[in-house]
Amino acid sequence: MTSELLDQALVEEATKKSGLIWVRGADAPAARALWHVWHEGAVCLVGDGPGEQPLTGLADGGAAEVTVRSKDKGGRLVTWPASVSEAAPGSPEWEAAVAELKGKRLNAPDGEEMLARWARECRVLRLVPAGSPLTLPDGTLAERPVPSPATTRRPVPAALPRLLAGRRKKK
């Protein structure tokens, strides 16, 4: 019993303190970094709408694997299995989750209209711990990034090295 309580405390504290978690759904080929809040014993996520994070591979009633990093060192701290449930817009679970998520959402394009947009166009998911933490693997688990226009590399402008060198000389 003590081991179960320690595992539960580790999962809760590590997840609360981490700004990002890596989640891999049952159907997803790779884990994806997602912002979240810890609320009432579960991770709450919002996404799959315009301008929100994609929740690829996470389905209501499905399973997921959540990896949490250490806040101070940045390394993998704990990986735990989760059961996924989707809160229906307007339900008490949805209202409680979005009240917490609203405070953590940075740079929302629509401010006060955000909750109405989430109800209309997004999904709110709860990932509840489902079992004891998994053993951490020995390898790095490094994978190629998911294709995105945000990761497109372009050549460095020719004048950039001169501009940076000029700034150092002026100081």
Rank of each mutant, 00 (worst) to 15 (best):
G75C: 04
S85F: 02
A82P: 05
P133T: 12
D7C: 12
V11H: 09
P109M: 07
A96F: 02
G111E: 14
E93A: 14
L115E: 13
S18P: 03
A31Y: 01
G74S: 03
D72Q: 06
I21E: 06
V46F: 00
P92D: 12
L58K: 09
D48L: 02
D110S: 11
G19A: 13
R126C: 01
R105G: 02
T135D: 15
V124N: 07
V78H: 01
E95W: 00
A87T: 12
S85P: 04
V43L: 15
K73P: 00
L58Q: 09
R76F: 00
T152V: 13
P161T: 02
L141K: 12
E95C: 04
W118P: 11
A87M: 09
H36F: 14
A33T: 09
V11I: 15
L141H: 10
A9V: 12
P50G: 03
L34A: 06
G111L: 10
A96L: 05
V98I: 15
R126A: 08
C44L: 03
K102A: 10
Q8I: 01
V98N: 04
L34E: 08
R76H: 03
E40Q: 15
L127D: 10
E121G: 01
A28R: 09
A28F: 02
G90N: 09
L20I: 13
K104A: 15
P54Y: 06
S3H: 15
E40I: 04
R144G: 01
E100Q: 15
L45P: 05
L34N: 08
E52L: 08
S3T: 15
P161L: 02
A116S: 12
V124T: 14
P129K: 12
W38D: 07
P161E: 04
V124F: 02
G41E: 10
E95Q: 13
A99R: 13
A14L: 11
G62N: 04
R24D: 05
A88G: 04
G57K: 10
L10G: 02
A30P: 00
E40R: 12
A31S: 14
E93M: 04
P161V: 00
P155T: 07
A9G: 06
L45V: 05
C44N: 01
P137C: 04
G131L: 07
G74P: 02
E65Q: 11
A59F: 05
L127H: 08
V78N: 03
R167W: 11
L34Y: 06
A150S: 09
P157L: 07
A108F: 01
T151I: 05
G62P: 07
G25V: 04
L45H: 07
G90L: 09
G139A: 15
T79P: 07
V156I: 12
R105M: 13
P161S: 04
R154E: 13
R168I: 03
A26N: 08
G139P: 04
H39I: 09
